[in-house]
Computed example of a mutant assay.
Amino acid sequence: MREKPTLRIPLGILALLVALAAYALAVMWASQWIEQTPVAVQTVVYLVLGVVWLLPLRRFLIWMETGRWG
Rank of each mutant, 00 (worst) to 15 (best):
T43F: 05
W29F: 15
W53E: 01
L7G: 07
A15Q: 11
Q42K: 10
R2W: 01
A30P: 04
I34R: 04
A30D: 11
A15T: 11
V45D: 00
T37F: 13
Q32T: 14
T66W: 05
L20V: 11
G50T: 06
I13N: 03
L14G: 12
Q32P: 00
S31D: 13
A22R: 02
E3C: 02
I34C: 04
M28E: 14
L49H: 03
L14E: 07
V44Y: 04
V41Y: 12
S31H: 12
Q32W: 09
V48P: 00
A24Q: 06
R2P: 00
L25Y: 09
P5R: 15
A26W: 15
A19P: 08
E65C: 09
V52I: 15
A24M: 04
V27H: 07
V39F: 13
A21H: 08
V27T: 01
G70K: 15
R8C: 03
A19Y: 02
L61G: 11
L17C: 13
I62E: 11
G67C: 01
I34G: 04
M1V: 04
A24T: 10
A40S: 15
V51L: 14
L11W: 13
L57F: 09
P5I: 09
Y23S: 04
T66L: 02
T6N: 00
T66F: 01
L49K: 07
P5D: 12
L54P: 05
A22C: 10
G70V: 11
P38F: 06
P10I: 00
V18E: 07
V48F: 10
M1D: 02
V18W: 04
V45G: 03
L14R: 12
M64W: 08
W33C: 04
V18Q: 03
Q36E: 15
L61E: 08
V52Y: 00
G50C: 03
V52N: 01
A21P: 02
P56Q: 10
V45R: 00
K4A: 09
G70F: 12
A26L: 15
P56A: 08
L61F: 14
L7T: 13
W29G: 06
V27N: 06
L16N: 11
V39A: 15
L49D: 08
Y23T: 03
Y23P: 01
R58V: 01
T37Q: 15
W29V: 14
V44Q: 02
R68T: 14
R59P: 00
L57P: 01
G70C: 09
I9R: 03
V52P: 01
V18S: 08
L55Y: 12
G67T: 06
L47E: 10
E65I: 03
I13P: 05
V44T: 11
F60D: 05
P56L: 00
V48A: 14
R68F: 10
A19N: 05
I9L: 13
A30T: 13
A19W: 03
W63D: 11
I34M: 09
I34F: 10
M1A: 12
L17K: 05
A40G: 09
A26F: 15
P10V: 00
W53Y: 10
M1R: 08
F60A: 14
E35S: 14
V27R: 13
R8Y: 03
P56I: 04
M28V: 09
Q42C: 12
Y23N: 07
Y23Q: 07
Y23K: 02
L25Q: 09
A15E: 05
R59M: 06
L25P: 00
L57I: 11
L49T: 09
I13C: 04
G67W: 04
L61S: 12
R8I: 01
G50H: 04
T43I: 09
